[in-house]
């Protein structure tokens, strides 16, 4: 079974803080990590390979530094890493990104399953996975929390919904996006880390993936950010300190009319 895992390098948003004086992002010391949801995608891909044999290829689109994400993916059990990187991709929105990744996937000869994380933690769009499936015209199942069965022909998966879940069966090749309930990502092995360090990565530029330049980067992105601002803070509230008996009585008095 040949598996492609699409990953993204993101700033660790849990470390991002706002400078209360200037209302701007504090980026110092914020590390780049693999998008947390993609860690589940990698793990699921590696588990499928361990069960069915075959190969897992990690693919990412990003600046040259994103190769660190691919090396980490290899340390976790992926066999190869492909970095799709070109100045022409800069400024891509989800449409251009999914187009570019889909064209790169087409260049990889055979695959059975493409696995993506549910969404990226910096953009939170959840649009690139289904976008790739649409470009390739293959079936998709999003929010997969469990792969129940898989064989050469099809997979049966459980998709998480707001109310519970659904069981779906899709022929291969197909694309799934996974949620964190699907597995617990492993910690790399020392041998894996050593292998990743030495691994030779493939690097593709725009000319390598047979794409239409008009659909790349800013040119291929219908959406455009026109303004960035910090959300307005709420007005300062009333903070009670002191004896718990008194503070709780006061609070109940103030709120009791808002309830019922």
């Amino acid at each position: 079974m040949n598996i492609i895992v699409c990953i993204k390098q993101v700033p660790d948003t849990t470390q991002v803080k706002i400078d209360p004086k200037t209302n701007t992002l504090i980026r110092e010391g914020v590390e780049s990590i693999i998008n947390p949801f993609d860690m589940y995608a990698i793990e699921e891909g590696v588990r499928l390979k361990e069960k069915f044999g075959g190969k897992v290829i990690a693919i990412t689109m990003g600046p040259p530094q994103a190769e660190a994400a691919l090396r980490e993916a290899i340390s976790l059990g992926c066999d190869d890493g492909i970095l799709v990187s070109d100045r022409a991709f800069a400024g891509s929105d989800t449409l251009a990104t999914s187009y570019t990744l889909a064209m790169a996937v087409k260049k990889i000869e055979t695959f059975d399953i493409i696995i993506c994380g549910k969404q990226a933690s910096d953009g939170d769009t959840a649009q690139v996975g289904p976008g790739i499936a649409a470009h390739l015209n293959i079936p998709q199942v999003t929010y997969v929390k469990h792969i129940k069965e898989a064989d050469e022909e099809a997979i049966t998966v459980e998709r998480m919904t707001e109310e519970g879940s659904e069981i779906l069966r899709s022929p291969l090749p197909c694309l799934i996006t996974v949620v964190k309930e699907i597995n617990e990502p492993r910690i790399p092995s020392l041998k894996g880390k050593m292998k990743a360090k030495k691994a030779e990565l493939t690097c593709w530029k725009a000319i390598d993936i047979d794409c239409d330049d008009e659909r790349l980067g800013l040119n291929g992105s219908p959406t455009q950010v026109v303004r960035i601002f910090t959300p307005p803070p709420r007005a300062q509230g009333e903070i009670l300190e002191g004896d718990p008996q008194e503070t709780t009585s006061k609070l109940v008095e103030m709120l009791k009319d808002s309830i019922q």
Partner: peptide, 17 residues
Amino acid sequence: EEQEMIRDLCRQITDEK
């Protein structure tokens, strides 16, 4: 480099597990 790698890996296990 290998010793640094061991340190990083063990630190990850310590922090996460």
